[in-house]
Each structure stands twice: as structure tokens, then as C-alpha cells.
Amino acid sequence: MTVLPLDPVQALERMMLIRAYEETLIDLHGRGRAAGTCTSVGQEAPAVGVVSALTADDLILTNHRSAGHLLARGADPGRMLAEVMGKRDGYCGGKSGSLHISAKEFGVVLTSTIVGGELALATGVGLSRRMLDKSGIVACFFGDGAATEGRFQESLNLAAVWKLPILYVCENNQWQAFVHRKETMLADGIVGQAAALGVETAVVDGNDPLAVFDAASAAIDAIRRTGKPFLLEAMTYRLRGHFEPDDQGYVDKAELARWRDRDPILGLRARLEREGRLTAEAEAAMEARVRAAMEAATAFADASPYPGVEVLTTDVYA
């Protein structure tokens, strides 16, 4: 159950893969070959930072902006693309599409695209960890929008009362679909609500994967030690629109520019270059690997057949 320290170079490559995956999808959509999606562009750091701090026994619940969480966990971008394209080899056989991909083999369970849906399910997954004496904890990813749902309070309250081993990860990306966070809540973050319910909290720079990793590791240690839930709020930014395509005409240009300057991938790359830990050759090799991975993924998804209509009504009932 030991988690190795996060290798910043590997973290960078993983973030680059996530970004490349999303850009591939945007491109495929632009060419009419995939449905529109909710991308995680700009939010790669919480995904890589938190997921890298988990063990194989831990379970993940995520939401409609899930590609980062899945890829950080090691999911195959080819099977993910196939799912988004509605193909048979997708993780869910094409029945999910982009919005609710689960991959049980990686412990990514019960993805709900209903905002806040994952919060309502996480307590049950935490309860089963307890009742079945499982060692793993539950990481539940949601956004600031989900925190305005009543289920946020209900979930944290029950997890606190029942002492459930849940790491709540709020990716506060400042946007709730087409509405800025500042229009819907007075506080700048949500940790105050969690603290009021008796849940321990921390706030972290959500564009710094190394800081996220450290904060998540400390939070997970606390959960394993106390058995109680913990809320980690990662302050980040959704660099693209709610749903592709989206011209972001409603986004304040200056704010977007500020956050683009804080792009998590550019930030880590610059830091590693500055510290002499990333050579131009290594960078080029990394880029080539990511490109090759996405080319292979696209080819795999392209080659995968559509499901036969005979599966239209399979898997409705167990």
C-alpha cells in the first residue's frame, strides 16, 4: 500500500497525455467524428496529483469531466476514445459515451454525469469499504457546481457522522456550466461548508500537480489514520468551454488570459527546465511518445466496430 513519491517528469508526461487526449477529441468532434464532450483542459493537475497518491485498492468516483482521472489511473486512451465514439471496444461498450465512463478494472466506479450524483453514491462506496473490511479509501471528484447541490451537504454530513473513508476532491474550476462561480456563491471556496459539518479540509493550488500530490497524500494519511472523511479543494480553472463546441464568448478575457498564463502543464515544464531536470531531448521524446500514444488510440478507436443493435436492451437488468 506504499505510494511512491510523485516523479515530476512522469507527472508532466501524464498531464501532456491528458491534454493530448482532450485535444484529439476536440479535433475529432470538429471533423464530425465524435460527439461533443466536456473536457478537462486546464484541470490536469488535480487529476494527476490526487490519483498518483492513491493505491490500487482505492476506488474513484468521477463525473462528466473525467478523462484526466481515468488517464491518470492508467486507463487506455484507445478504449476511452472508442467509448466516446460509441464503439464496441469502449469501456462501457458504447453505452456511456463521453459523459459517464466507468472502468471497474481500474477502480473507477459509478461515474455519474448528474452534477452531484457522484457525491450521493460515494457514501455507499465508503460504507461498503467499512462493512466489508476493505483497506481502500474512496476518492470522489466533483466541482464547485456540484457543491451548490444539496447532495454535497448531505454526503459530507453522512460521511462525517458514519466516519466513512472518503477523500472529497473539489476541483474548483470557477465555472458551473455557463455560469461563473461568483454568480452562485458568496464564498471563494467550499471548505467553509465542509468544516461546518465537521470534515477536515485543505485548500491547494490546483494548477500545481506536485502541491496537489503532497496535499492529497497528507489527506489520505489522515483518512487512513482517523477513518474520517477529508475534503481537499483544488483551486483551478476550466480553460475551455463547458461543452465542446463552445466559443467561450461569456468568459472574461482578462481572467482567461491570467489562468492561461498559469497553465499547469506549461508551469511544471518551465519549472523542470529551470531546475535542470528536463532536457530538450527528453521533452521531445516525451512529446513523441504522447503523440504516438494518441495516434495509436485514434487508430484503435477508428478500427473498433459499432456495437450491434442486438445489445440495445442488454445489461438493463442483472
Binding site: A120, G124, G126
Partner: peptide, 18 residues
């Protein structure tokens, strides 16, 4: 007495072994 979280907890628990 929050029915939503009661039912959600049941669904999450059911899907993971209870």
C-alpha cells in the same frame, strides 16, 4: 432524514458489495 443521500448510499453500497 435526507432521502436522496439514503438512496444514493444504498446504490453506491449495492454496486460495491452490499
Amino acid at each position: 432524514l435526507a432521502e436522496g443521500i439514503i438512496a444514493g448510499t444504498a446504490a453506491g453500497a449495492a454496486a460495491t458489495g452490499l
